[in-house]
Design a protein around this nucleic acid. Structure first.
Lengths: 240, 240
DNA sequence: GGCCTTAGAGTCAAGGTGACCAAAAAATCC
DNA sequence: GGATTTTTTGGTCACCTTGACTCTAAGGCC
C-alpha cells in the first residue's frame, strides 16, 4: 500500500474481528448485550458479541450478520455505526487480532432466545459491566466505555435517541432515553419544546396513549432526520 | 473472539494497513498530502501515505511512524485521530487488506524532502484530488471525502483548527482556517467574540504582528482545551 | 496628509435557553 | 363524587447568544 521500503506482503498472522456494542434502555438504566464465552481464552467470562470477519465480507456486513446471529435483530432497522478500530498487539492472547467495534442502539429488545447462537447472551446494566470487578474479556471494558461516551455525544448531535424507542412513542419516552444515558434530569417542558421545534425529529401520529398515571400523552413516530440542528446540548443537573 | 460456531482461527490471508489523511491550509485552500505509488498495483498513481502495521505495533503507533516517515513531522505535536476502518473485500486487488484511516491536521508543513521515504510526496489541493479524473488509488477517494467531512465537523466541536496554525497566530489566521475548510465566509467580529469567549481555546501572548497591510494583530497561542463548548456551528454564507 | 487595508470594539434586534408556573387530563383513594 | 396525585402540555419571563451591522484604531503606501 506504500512506496518502496515496506515488504510487499508481511505475513504476520493477523485476524480481523468485529465487536458489537448494543445498547438498550431497560428499567430506566442503560443496558448492554453481553455473551458468556464458551471457550478459551476467557472461557466463562463475559464479552461483547462479535466474531471473525469472513473472507469475502465487508466490515459493515460482518457487523450486521453478527448482530442478527447474536440477537435475532435485523440490523437494517437500527443504525449500526462504526465506533473505531482497536489494534493493541497484546489485546488478544491468541495472537494479532484487530477488531472493529460497532455501536448500535435499539429499543427494548426481546430477551435472547435459547437454542440460538445467542443462547447465553444477556442484558447487563452498563454500569455493572463497567465496574472494575466485572472482568470483561480482552479490552472490551475500554471499548464499552468508549461506546458510552460516543452514545452520549451522538445524542447531542443526531436523532439516534429515537432508535431506543419502539414506535409509536411519547415525548417523555424520548426524554427518558436522554436522562438515562446522560445521567441528568431534563426539564420536561423545555425538552418538549426543543424536540418539536427540530424539523424531522418526530412527527405526531394523532393518537394518544394513557399510561398508569397522569394525563394521556400524544404519540409520535420517528421523523426521518438523522442530524440534530441545532444540537441538543447536555447541561442539566446530574442525577443522584 | 466469539462463542461456539466460529472456527478458531480462520486463516484467510488478511493484512492491516494504516492510511493517513494529512491536511494543511496553503494559499487559502485545503491541501492533502499524497504520494506517488512506486509499484503495482496503481503504480504511478497518487495515494494517501500509509503502510502495513508491523507485527508488534499498535495502530496509533503505526500511524505516528508512517506520519514521521512520510513527512518528517513528529506526530506527537499534532492530534492524530482515527477516522474509521475500511474493509471492503475488493478494495485492494492484492487480496484482503483492511485499512484504518487516520486524520491529522497540521500547520503549513515543509515541502517533503527528497531522499527520504517521502521523496515523491506532494501537497495537492483537496478539491483537485477529489475530482473524478484525478484517479486516487484504491478507495482513497472515498476515504478522503469522508475525512473532509470529518474535519469540517471537528472544527465545530473541537479546537483542532488551532493545529493548522503555527504559533503564535492571530485570530484572523484561525478564522481563515474555518473559512477555507467550511468554504464559508465568517464575520470577523463575531468570530473573534466567540473564540475569545471560549475558555482555553486561545490565550494572548501580549505580542502583536504587523502584516503586509492593516492594523497589527494581537498574537495568541493555543490554550490547551480540546473540546469547544459551546460548539462553533457553521452557518455562514457559502463562498463563491 | 489622504487613502487603503485589516483589527478590533460596540450596538441592536431576533431568537434560543433555562427556570418556573399553571392548566389539562387521566387514575386512585377516601 | 370529590379531592389528590401524577404526568402531559402550554405559557411566561429574564437572560444570553447570535448574526448583521457600524464605527474606530493602527499600520503601510502614494
Amino acid at each position: 500500500m506504500n512506496s518502496a521500503v515496506v515488504p510487499d506482503t508481511p505475513r504476520t498472522p493477523v485476524s480481523v474481528t468485529v465487536d458489537l456494542v448494543i445498547f438498550t434502555v431497560r428499567d430506566d438504566a442503560l443496558h448492554v448485550l453481553l455473551v458468556k464465552r464458551g471457550k478459551e481464552p476467557f472461557m466463562g467470562d463475559s464479552a461483547l458479541p462479535g466474531g471473525y470477519v469472513r473472507p469475502d465480507e465487508d466490515l459493515d456486513a460482518a457487523a450486521l450478520r453478527e448482530l442478527s446471529e447474536e440477537t435475532g435483530v435485523d440490523g437494517r432497522e437500527l443504525r449500526l455505526a462504526q465506533l473505531r478500530a482497536y489494534g493493541d498487539p497484546d489485546r488478544d492472547p491468541r495472537g494479532r487480532v484487530i477488531t472493529v467495534a460497532y455501536l448500535a442502539l435499539g429499543p427494548d429488545l426481546p430477551d435472547p432466545v435459547a437454542g440460538t447462537d445467542a443462547a447465553d447472551a444477556v442484558w447487563v446494566p452498563t454500569q455493572e459491566a463497567l465496574a472494575p470487578g466485572y472482568g470483561l474479556s480482552f479490552d472490551h471494558g475500554r471499548i464499552l466505555s468508549d461506546a458510552v461516551e460516543e452514545a452520549r455525544s451522538r445524542l447531542e448531535y443526531t436523532t439516534v435517541a429515537a432508535d431506543f424507542c419502539r414506535e409509536p412513542f411519547t415525548i417523555s419516552d424520548l426524554r427518558r432515553v436522554y436522562e438515562v444515558i446522560w445521567g441528568t434530569a431534563l426539564d420536561p417542558s423545555n425538552f418538549r419544546r426543543k424536540v418539536l421545534r427540530t424539523a424531522g425529529f418526530v412527527e405526531p401520529t394523532g393518537e394518544r396513549r394513557t399510561a398508569e398515571a397522569g394525563r394521556p400523552a400524544a404519540l409520535y413516530r420517528f421523523g426521518g432526520a438523522t442530524e440534530l440542528y441545532p444540537p441538543l446540548l447536555r447541561s442539566g443537573d446530574v442525577l443522584g
